[in-house]
Design a protein around this nucleic acid. Structure first.
Length: 273
DNA sequence: AACAAGACCTGCATGC
DNA sequence: TGCATGCAGGTCTTGT
């Protein structure tokens, strides 16, 4: 579900409600998500205050008094919400932080592809989860020269290249698909065969689609909500993602679905070359 | 080195 | 209705 815009929407929704709160008790109800949950390290957050909410790639980073950070990744099906304490437990509620004022920050993740772990005071550079991550596309905004530089020596299809987090982070299947449509690039085209002009269009399309999605509150296909349970609306604006057989909004030709490295790609065979 | 494919796990939609 | 099948937005590992 969640790509960069969804995590950013989540971060913005939770920031004013979490900063300054004290964690009173930590409930670890599962042994592992995509990696083991460190019961002791997570439990050690009890008694400490939340100082900041940041994002790196698709990780939400909860800054804790004392300099550590709690990193949360939603995987495909995760949902992180802040609810009043008495709210009954949901199915698949694997992790919960009970806060002062009786509220509870809870992580629900049926497929358990998510993650939650502590980043040491030494920082993200020292943590293996973050060392190989590529650049943030929004701050500062990605440009064509940078994108072309990142693609040097590579022959991957444009779609796979965009989704490779070692180059640019935060762009998953939905937004890669939509950015390629906006840029008029066939998802199968090798990045070795893109001109500088087309890299510029692609970079601009990536920035544009991510920013528009944030404004729309993210894309909710199944699971995504912000920290208050509010769904996104960007799914209404998707031009080709999930629309196989339907008319291309630009030229009317039927949108095609193909599979690239095991994932669905959607594109207009006339508009995208 | 770069790339493709499979694995991880559950829920849901579809079709027989 | 019940069951099997296929598919899902993300990483991570393995093999070519």
């Amino acid at each position: 579900m969640p790509e960069l815009p969804e995590i950013e929407v989540l971060r913005r929704s939770l920031e004013p409600r979490l900063v300054g709160r004290r964690i009173e008790r930590v409930e670890v109800r599962a042994k592992a998500l995509r990696e083991r949950l460190d019961r002791r390290a997570l439990g050690a957050l009890a008694g400490r205050r939340i100082e900041a909410l940041e994002r790196r790639s698709k990780y939400l980073l909860v800054g804790i008094e004392g300099g550590e950070r709690l990193a949360i990744h939603l995987g495909m099906s995760g949902r992180l919400t802040l609810v009043p304490g008495p709210e009954p437990r949901e199915p698949h509620e694997h992790l919960a932080f009970h806060l002062d004022r009786g509220e509870r920050l809870r992580l629900r993740d049926p497929r358990r592809f998510g993650a939650a772990f502590i980043v040491a005071r030494a920082g993200l550079e020292a943590d293996p989860h973050f060392v190989h991550l590529g650049i943030e596309p929004l701050s500062p905004a990605l440009d064509g020269h940078t994108l072309a530089e990142l693609a040097r020596g590579r022959r991957a299809p444009a779609k796979a290249f965009l989704m490779d987090g070692r180059r640019v982070v935060g762009v998953g299947n939905i937004y890669a698909t939509e950015a390629l449509f906006r840029a008029g690039i066939d998802p199968r085209r090798s990045v070795a065969r893109l001109t500088g002009e087309r890299f510029a269009r692609l970079a601009a399309a990536v920035v544009e689609v991510l920013e528009e999605a944030i404004v729309a509150g993210g894309t909710t296909l199944n699971d995504f909500t912000d920290g208050s349970g509010q769904q996104g609306e960007f799914q209404i604006d998707l031009a080709v993602y999930g629309r196989a057989g339907q008319p291309c909004p630009r030229c009317g030709r039927a949108v095609r679905r193909i599979v690239q490295s095991g994932r669905s790609s959607f594109f207009c065979p006339r508009c995208q070359r």
